[in-house]
Amino acid sequence: MTAQNLHIDSEQVVSIILIAYHGDRWLPDCLGTLADASTQPLHLVLVDNSGNTILDDLDLSAFDAEVLSTPRPMGFAEANNYALVEASHLEDTVLFLNQDTKSPSGWIDECVRVLRENPSLGAVSPYIRTYEDDGWDTSFLTCLSEQQKARLERDSVSSEVIPVQNAPAPALLVRTDVLVETGPFDPVYGSYYEDYDLCRRIRDEGHSIGFCRDARIRHFAGGSTTTEQQQRRRMRQVIRNRVLYELRDGDGPRWWTAVRRFLLGFPHRLARGVAGTSSSQPPLVTLKAYGDLLRIFDRLVSERRDEAEWMAYLDEIGWPPRPVPSPVSSRASVSVQ
């Protein structure tokens, strides 16, 4: 680990975790705009997760910054967790930020204000625009109800916090004390749906999730999938992880729901792929995705086994991280000597 500017300012309120993975294309604009996203000093944890050649040339002087290197290339969930436990400290709020984002001025301050004024909120996200700011990001729209989308298009949203079940990971702010309570991302997902799963656990602990109306960020959807092979690998993960998430978030006996997924859902999805219907995936993608699910079938059908695997992982990484701030918003940070 190397560190830059590890002077901890008493006014800091946010620790930003930014995973850099083949990020040369994205990092200069991401970091160049991020400095103006808050009027307060920002604690930046920049993680070299493979494929980056410009990290030593980046100007991090606008941040209290530390740079970590993963021991091997990790999935999005595991890389963020590595940062959480290896960072020198965490502020009152953790911001999980994608590298393929651009930050308008002041959006972090708006989200922090909303969190402070709404104690029931466990996590909040800004409204997410496309990278070129010519429309709404698909991951943002997916989290809204049809009624919320209609109001969005009419620009008739009156509440400054839009309540949702889940918020996506391109820019997700979570109270650190809530994160300690719920645990970090579950690496069983790798990438995709790990953000929904974290939101599920936040809701299960009695906290709410919302979008901040007065905050905006711009995100390039699909920045890590540039070839057909990468797209197929992505959809394989999406199919696998959607099943796991829906099993965890659903009602009724897990084992019965899992069996139905394999006996009914799998043949239906496979048939759609053979027929080439709209939004279907090639049969081989579906076959591989359900093959991946068979490898964790014991976790799918047994909540007890699933919970045991999760708790073992938390013990393995040393959760919760230390030091962490008090749940009370005292602005005292812990310095690393």
Rank of each mutant, 00 (worst) to 15 (best):
D92N: 14
E181V: 08
Q230V: 04
W107Y: 12
Y127R: 15
M311Y: 06
D24W: 10
R240D: 02
R299Q: 14
V174Q: 00
D197E: 13
Q229I: 12
H89M: 14
F63Y: 09
L144R: 12
S120F: 10
Q147F: 11
H207A: 10
G291V: 00
N80D: 08
S224K: 01
D197C: 09
F140C: 04
V243E: 05
S69N: 08
N49H: 01
A83W: 03
V174A: 00
Y21M: 05
D195V: 04
L179C: 08
L95I: 00
Y245F: 14
E309F: 13
T2A: 13
W319G: 00
D109Y: 01
N81M: 02
S38Q: 09
S61M: 07
S278E: 15
I54S: 08
L141R: 07
A169N: 15
I202M: 03
G106W: 06
E146W: 09
Q230E: 15
D48A: 08
I108Y: 03
V94Y: 00
D36M: 06
P327N: 00
A20C: 12
V259R: 14
P327A: 05
P170V: 00
S61Q: 11
V336A: 13
Y21R: 09
F297E: 03
R72Q: 12
R218T: 12
E307S: 09
T142V: 12
